[in-house]
Design a protein around this nucleic acid. Structure first.
Lengths: 243, 243
DNA sequence: GGGGAGAGATGCCGC
DNA sequence: GCGGCATTTCTCCCC
């Protein structure tokens, strides 16, 4: 125990990335309060002060502290205490270590950023670039307009010269997706003094409740999948072959 | 490299909890697609098939695979490839290992469940048990009614014998919190054939937009903090001292 | 820094 | 399994 604690204390001082496996209890107090009885866990301490406690199953840390946490170690035989405090957030976590199985650390460095495709931004771009996929004859006017009342993806005129606001959701469209579209349509009616502004929700799927609410408002739903990386890749390759 | 790979392969076969620190690239393909350039990371593989890739800073895994993932290792000098597949989800992640700094594993077991207080359930209980904190004269009728159109915390009659639906939010109340309350109030009006059903949102804080929307609907807002562990403790101690 | 909305959200519960 | 909703949500973007 003492040798492993020494290793842990040295690693904390050096600000390396640390992993330990231990039999421990955990107590958290902050935005909520939690108690976790004794069990075997992995504890990760990052150089920015992030602390994660992971059980041997499940995707999520069972307890965590965000970046900026200060960790101190107290040896109180036969147990040890890892004390984690985040002063600014008023958060504290206490890990009572009954046994340590291993401690490892390494001075990791990583500046890479992840590149992701198939998200809402790609959906929005696709709607603007291919309005015909929403409906024949649509002419885009503006894209991704951030208003005081919400967010709209594409504002268009339809073939009857009627204003239409289209909002895109990359996955299942729930009730929560609707108020911003509704708010925006209402605001357009008022500010332009028009009676008829259409609302169109574009998503691969929609829940029954959301469908009912759309019907109540006389809004439309258009089923469409979000673009994926391979499609984008194909498209950019096609463009290259044009030259 | 080869010795550490052997250790990794043995640990995967034994279904222990594994941690490795490595210089690696990561490619994911599934619900979206991601590319992560070379850098130093911690990789955690749990016995249930959860795989987490953590950069040396930040709370969240930069890449992950959920429980049920199958991992295989391929040695392709001078690099190695950790291949992670989740057939049922159609997800795959490839970790290209350029250098391994350490590999550790341990047969962790943990059946403990976390106990949490100060969440939305506690908020709901408090509203039902102390309706006077919302408004004088409220009489609770039902609690946490799950309806086809949404979720309501407490349904009451007020001192004028008017139906009032109260929804509690434990933190900042956003626009997204409102549609279910609205839907519920509308449904109550229709089903009971009543003109006047009140909607009350209870939360410690509310955004400006949500406040405006409430005003449009003639709903009320009541500011209230969620209960915390210490309060609950104090209350239960007070109850004990009654005897 | 606060507010609004998305996320490869995740996880839980209810039907 | 789908749907609705909470989460110590977290993170990004924009005012």
């Amino acid at each position: 125990m003492q040798a492993k604690l020494q290793k842990l204390i040295a690693a904390l001082a050096s600000r390396e990335s640390i992993v330990l496996a231990a039999d421990c209890e955990v107590f958290y107090e902050g935005k909520a309060e939690t108690v976790l009885a004794r069990g075997h866990r992995l504890i990760i301490i990052k150089k920015d002060g992030t602390v994660l406690v992971h059980q041997p199953e499940g995707n999520h840390p069972i307890n965590y502290m965000k970046a900026g946490t200060e960790c101190t170690v107290l040896y109180d035989p036969p147990k040890a205490i890892l004390n984690c405090m985040h002063i600014a957030f008023g958060d504290s976590m206490e890990v009572v270590l009954h046994e340590i199985y291993f401690v490892e650390s390494s001075p990791l460095s990583d500046g890479a950023k992840i590149q992701l495709t198939g998200n809402e931004r790609d959906m929005s771009d696709m709607l603007y670039e291919n309005p015909y996929r929403i409906e024949k004859g649509l002419i885009p006017v503006s894209k991704e307009e951030q208003t005081k009342y919400g967010f709209i993806d594409v504002l268009c005129y339809d073939e009857n010269n009627c204003l239409a606001a289209a909002a895109g959701i990359r996955s299942m469209a729930h009730l929560a997706a609707l108020p911003s579209l509704r708010r925006y349509v209402e605001k357009m009616k008022q500010s332009k003094g028009i009676e008829n502004v259409r609302g169109i929700l574009v998503a691969p799927m929609i829940t029954e409740n959301a469908k009912h609410m759309l019907k109540d408002w006389n809004f439309s739903f258009v089923a469409m999948d979000p673009p994926k990386f391979r499609e984008k890749l194909k498209k950019s390759q096609a463009k290259l072959s044009d030259f």
